[in-house]
C-alpha cells in the first residue's frame, strides 16, 4: 500500500487530503504492524525446524507443520484446551446468570437493605484476588477441591464488576414493560428471564466476552490449585510445557501459537461484537 493509493482512496471518499493525514495514517499503520510483530514471529517460528530458528527472517525458508504434529500428537494440548474451554464456559454461564440476576434485583426491586447489599458487593472490587488465594487454598484443601474443575472455577462464579455492569444496564430498562408483564400474571423470575434479559443482550454479550477471556487466560489461581497435568488449563499447561522443552524455541512458539489461535479465530469471527462489548463495558463499568 503506497501513499499515493491511500491518497486516492481518501480523495474518492470525498475528504480533503492533507499530507498530515497521510503521515498520521502511515504512522498508525506502522504502529499497528509493530504491535502484531510478536504474533507474526511466533507463528513464523512455529513453522521452522530447530536448525532454522536462528534464521531471523519472517517467512520461513521451508515451512513445516512438524512442530504442530509433535505437540498435538501427545494429546496434552487438546486436553488443556478442553479444560480451559470448559472452565471458561462454565464460569461465563454462571456469571451471566448470577450477575444479571443480582444486577436486576438491585436495579429494579425496592427493599430495605438494597443499598447495603449493593455497597457490600461493590466493596469486594477492592479486594485483590491475591489476598484471597491463601484462604481459598486452605478452604480448597479442607474441602477436597484441590485439583478439581470446581476448585479452578469457584472463585470466579460471580463478580462484582459483572453485577455492577448489569445493574447499570437494567436501570435503563423501562419499568412499564415489567409492570405490563406483572399485570399479565407472570412471576418475577419469568419477568426477569423472559422480558428484562432480552432487553440487555448487548450488555450480556459484553459480560460474557470479558468473563470468558479473563478465565481463558487466567494463570495465577489455576497454577496454584491444579496439581495433575490432566487438569491444567492451557496457560498453566503451556508454562510447564515451555519449561520442560528446555528452551527449544520452535516447540515453545508452537505451544504459544496453539494457545493463541483459538482466541484470534473467535475474534476474527466476532470482531464487531467483541469491540462493541469492550466499549460498552468500559463506558458503563
Amino acid at each position: 500500500m503506497t501513499a499515493a493509493t491511500v491518497s486516492s482512496e481518501l480523495a474518492a471518499n470525498g475528504r480533503n487530503i492533507r499530507p498530515g493525514r497521510v503521515i498520521t495514517w502511515t504512522l498508525l499503520l506502522i504502529g499497528g504492524l509493530i504491535m502484531v510483530t510478536p504474533l507474526l514471529y511466533m507463528f513464523s517460528t512455529s513453522l521452522k525446524t530447530a536448525g532454522q530458528v536462528y534464521d531471523l527472517r519472517l517467512i520461513p525458508a521451508a515451512p513445516t507443520l512438524d512442530n504442530y504434529i509433535r505437540v498435538v500428537s501427545d494429546g496434552r494440548f487438546l486436553r488443556w484446551f478442553l479444560n480451559s474451554t470448559f472452565v471458561a464456559l462454565a464460569v461465563t454461564v454462571s456469571n451471566v446468570f448470577f450477575d444479571s440476576l443480582v444486577g436486576y434485583t438491585l436495579a429494579k426491586f425496592e427493599f430495605r437493605g438494597r443499598y447495603f447489599v449493593f455497597l457490600a458487593i461493590l466493596s469486594t472490587l477492592m479486594i485483590p484476588t491475591e489476598m484471597l488465594v491463601i484462604p481459598w487454598y486452605l478452604m480448597s484443601s479442607q474441602l477436597g477441591w484441590i485439583d478439581s474443575y470446581w476448585g479452578i472455577m469457584f472463585p470466579g462464579m460471580m463478580t462484582a464488576f459483572g453485577t455492577f455492569l448489569m445493574k447499570q444496564f437494567f436501570e435503563g430498562v423501562p419499568n412499564d414493560f415489567l409492570e405490563a408483564a406483572r399485570v399479565d400474571g407472570l412471576n418475577e423470575f419469568t419477568i426477569w428471564w423472559k422480558i428484562a434479559m432480552p432487553m440487555v443482550t448487548p450488555a450480556i454479550s459484553a459480560l460474557a466476552i470479558f468473563t470468558f477471556l479473563g478465565n481463558w487466560t487466567a494463570f495465577f489461581w489455576p497454577l496454584i490449585v491444579t496439581t495433575s497435568r490432566e487438569l491444567y488449563t492451557l496457560p498453566v499447561g503451556l508454562s510447564s510445557f515451555a519449561v520442560e522443552q528446555s528452551i527449544q524455541w520452535e516447540m515453545i512458539m508452537t505451544g504459544a501459537a496453539l494457545a493463541t489461535i483459538p482466541t484470534l479465530l473467535v475474534f476474527l469471527l466476532l470482531q464487531r461484537y467483541i469491540v462493541r462489548g469492550v466499549m460498552l463495558a468500559g463506558l458503563k463499568g
Binding site: L29, G32, P38, M42, T260, T263
Partner: peptide
C-alpha cells in the same frame, strides 16, 4: 488498523511472555 492494535489484548500473557523472552 484497530484490529492490529487490539489483537495482543486477546493473547494469553503466559504464552506471550515466552515469545518476548525469546
Amino acid at each position: 488498523i484497530r484490529a492490529l492494535y487490539f489483537l495482543p489484548f486477546l493473547t494469553t500473557a503466559a504464552a506471550m511472555a515466552w515469545v518476548w523472552r525469546w
